[in-house]
Design a protein around this nucleic acid. Structure first.
Lengths: 197, 197
DNA sequence: CGCTCGTTTGAGAGGACTCAAGGTAGGTGG
DNA sequence: CCACCTACCTTGAGTCCTCTCAAACGAGCG
C-alpha cells in the first residue's frame, strides 16, 4: 500500500501545502480537481446527513491519499475532507496525474491495488453500519482498526467516543454504555478512559 | 464502465460457465482465485451478520464484474456471490489476468475507473446505512438506483421489499410501512404493489 | 387449482436516541 | 503552582419507533 513517491509527484508538477487543524480541504458536493496525498498529519472524511449528524467515512494518516475516486469518474465529492491535526499535503492536478500514470504503469497498478483495499474496507464498513446490535458494531469497528494497524496484541484505540459514534452510526451515549458493557464482559479494557483492544 | 471484452478474456485463457438461479459462485471467507464477469443474468453480493440477517452489498447485472477487489489484495471474500437468475459467467484466473493487464494498460486503467465508481457507490451505501430515518434511507436508496439506471423520469424499482430491506438495513415491515407513508406524501408511487420512483 | 413467493396488517416489547446536567483530564496563562 | 478553559466523558430519565412475532392476503406460474 505504498504511497506515490513525493519526488515523482513533484517532478510531474505537484505542490505541497500546509493546512491547519480543522480546515477543510474540499467540500462535499464540489468538483474534484486534484489528487491529494498526506505527507504529515491526519484528515477525516465526513458527510452530514439530513439531520446534520456527522458520519465519518474514514480517517487518513501519513502517506495515505484521499479523495481520488471522484477524480476518475467525473463526479462531485460525496464527502468533505477536514484536517484533524496541522498537516502537510501534496496535491497534483488531474491532467498532470494522467500524464504521470501514462508514463508509469506500475504506479497505475499500485493505485489499482490501493483502490481494491479501499473497496474491501468499505465493504467491512457497510457490515458495521448495517449491524443492529451496538456490541457487534463496536467490536467489528475495533477489529477493523486493529487489522489496519496490523496489531496482534491489544492496542490503544486512537479514537474518541464521539468519533467511534460517528463511525458506527451510534450516538455517543450508546457508545459509552456499550463500551462499559464490553469492558464488563472482558472484551475490551478501559484504563483511564482510554480503550484498549 | 465498459466491461472487458469477452473475446480478449478468452484469448488469455478465460472460460465461461452456466450457473443456475440460486447457486453460490463463491463464499464469504474463502480465497479468491478468479476474476468474474457476468455475461448474462444477475448476481447478488451478500453477507450475513451475527444474527443471520442478510445484508445485500450490491446486485450486479449483465456486463458487470464482481468479486475482483479481494483478488488484488490477497484477502478472503468479505461477501458471498449468489445468482438471482440463471446466469452465464466468464472467469479468468488471477495469473492469467495479471498477464492480460500487463499486456493491456488500457484495460488496467479501465478497471481503475471501475473501481473508482465502486468506491463512490459504496460511500453512498454507507450514507444510506448510517441514516437513522427510514424515509431518508429508502429515498436515498431509490435515488441511487435511479442514478445508476440513468433515468430522469419515474422508473419501476426492480427490487422486492425484502431486497430493499436487506439493502438498507431495515426489516421488511418497516420498508412496507415507510413506502406507504412515502406514497401518501406523493414521494413515490405504488401501483399494483410495484414501486415507481 | 394449488403452490410459492412476496406483501400486508396488528399488537407488543425492547432498546437506542434525545435532552439535560455534571464530571474529568490535559493544557495554558497568570 | 494554581486557576481556568476546553474538549471529552459519564450518568439518568423518558420517549419514540423500529423490530419481532404471528397471521393472513395477493399474485404469478406450472
Amino acid at each position: 500500500m505504498a504511497h506515490i513517491d513525493n519526488d515523482v509527484l513533484i517532478s510531474y508538477g505537484a505542490s505541497t501545502q500546509r493546512v491547519k487543524k480543522g480546515e477543510i480541504i474540499f467540500h462535499e458536493g464540489s468538483n474534484p480537481h486534484y489528487f491529494y496525498q498526506l505527507i504529515e498529519g491526519e484528515v477525516k472524511m465526513v458527510s452530514l446527513n439530513r439531520q446534520g449528524k456527522e458520519l465519518i467515512l474514514g480517517i487518513r494518516g501519513k502517506g495515505d491519499s484521499f479523495g481520488e475516486p471522484p477524480l476518475f469518474i467525473n463526479k462531485t465529492y460525496p464527502s468533505t475532507a477536514i484536517t484533524l491535526k496541522d498537516s502537510i499535503i501534496i496535491k497534483i492536478s488531474k491532467d498532470k496525474l494522467d500524464i504521470l500514470l501514462r508514463d508509469n504503469p506500475t504506479i497505475a497498478l499500485n493505485i489499482l491495488v490501493r483502490f481494491a483495499e479501499k473497496i474491501y474496507q468499505k465493504t467491512i464498513t457497510s457490515q458495521i453500519l448495517a449491524a443492529s446490535d451496538p456490541e457487534e458494531k463496536i467490536l467489528s469497528f475495533l477489529d477493523r482498526i486493529k487489522k489496519i494497524e496490523g496489531a496482534n496484541n491489544p492496542i490503544k484505540i486512537p479514537y474518541t467516543r464521539q468519533q467511534i459514534a460517528n463511525s458506527t452510526g451510534l450516538c455517543v451515549e450508546t457508545v459509552i454504555r456499550t463500551l462499559i458493557k464490553l469492558s464488563d464482559e472482558k472484551l475490551v479494557e478501559i484504563k483511564n478512559h482510554k480503550v484498549y483492544y
